[in-house]
Design a protein around this nucleic acid. Structure first.
Lengths: 221, 221
DNA sequence: CTATTATTCAAGTTATCGCTTGAATGATGT
DNA sequence: ACATCATTCAAGCGATAACTTGAATAATAG
């Protein structure tokens, strides 16, 4: 029954790929890219049952994509290191490369219109420094509370629709959310542009911003 | 029954990961990293039946990891572009990062001994130019025939054992094979060192060498 | 020590994947 | 048109994964 060493190696590589082959686990990874969290918080955010969430997390841990530590009664999970983030990013790049279906989905989100090029993180940092841009954080309030780009306004999609009239059409707006997997910023930009505002999306989300060593306004941990 | 656009996107990313989650498909990708091939050649190399191989290839194509073209009666597959190679490489890096099991497997191949650091491709190119190294291509003869590093000797593992006495212990030997997924070079280095020769492994294989723009001795296509 | 809360384990059901077999399609040569 | 060869499709079977439910384990509070 001993399989060759070659197959055993490939089996290990396949294990990592399989760990990323379920949408539920990609959601968990996206959440963990925001920062470390306990099982219940993750289950809550991803609409999984506690038990199911725990099982997915253990699968991610088996693939060494995440690690865990105990904190009192709670077990806190987090991404093992930046390589996990890099793998998530490359997976997304490859998936979006040629898949016409994904393209159509993204187009659908942008109201079938021309989606402008995203703003690079470097550019945004420079423009924040000169105050020539309004930054919009389109994540849930609790995630904003943990950390956000300095000076960013926090509001949900529905709130955005309400405050549109108060925004200055002359100032460019840059929206961001959790990261490349997250579609909130896409939707926000689509909504703002529909109202004639000059809005663009940030390339990447807060995890990538932090990874680049750019400043983060930290809240309660 | 319409699932949200968010889930649909994640489903697409998961599709790419799932395509890489079977050892058989990783073997196919490794083969295709050597160069484009027809279905029968791939089935032959990977010990799959034709039909099964065809199905795996279609799954890789659905994930846009490979593309195909017709050439007469044959359908020729190849990697879509360098990003597929990058994803394979990062998957390997992450898998080997923390998995003690993989480490043990690799140690097992190196006779439990100290495996020396691999030689970088840049270094090898320089040392070939000055002629201070013997290069060993440990792949099957037909793959060597299609293309190899200039000046490299081609021999199988069993042949290596035979010619060991004829090799000069003073000259360093660098072995390479298909790439990071391939263990031929690991085994060759272990065998040579066991005989007291100064052998090391090349970092990466021929696909990575070619990707770096380094010279390749091309044979029949 | 007992109760409580957070997480994990275990068993069972349903859906999906991987492999095999045999037939169908597509392109080429006679 | 016919035969031939490479590849793909379609159906069936066994193995594996995902999700649910209910019980077990770990750490803390009273």
């Amino acid at each position: 029954m001993s399989i060759g060493p070659k197959l055993a190696l490939l089996e290990e590589y396949a294990l990592v790929a399989r760990a990323m082959s379920a949408p539920a686990r990609l959601m968990l990874l996206e959440q963990l890219a925001q920062g470390e969290r306990g099982v219940e918080a993750l289950a809550d955010k991803t609409d999984l049952t506690i038990a199911n969430c725990s099982q997915h997390l253990q699968q991610l841990r088996r693939a060494a994509l995440v690690t865990s530590r105990r904190d009192g009664k709670a077990v806190i999970y987090r991404l093992t290191d930046a390589k996990t983030l890099a793998l998530m990013d490359l997976l997304r790049v490859v998936a979006e490369r040629n898949l016409a279906q994904v393209e159509r989905l993204l187009r659908g989100l942008s109201s079938g219109e021309d989606a402008p090029e995203p703003v690079s993180r470097e550019d945004l940092a420079a423009r924040i420094a000169e105050g020539s841009v309004t930054v919009l954080d389109v994540r849930p309030a609790d995630e904003y509370a943990v950390g956000h780009i300095p000076g960013a306004l926090n509001m949900t999609l529905t709130e955005i629709e309400r405050i549109v009239p108060t925004l200055d059409p002359a100032t460019e707006i840059v929206a961001y959310c959790r990261g490349p997997y997250c579609i909130y910023a896409h939707q926000a930009v689509a909504a703002l542009r529909k109202h004639g505002l000059n809005a663009r999306r940030l390339d990447g989300g807060l995890p990538e911003w932090r990874e680049d060593g750019l400043p983060v306004m930290a809240g309660a941990q």
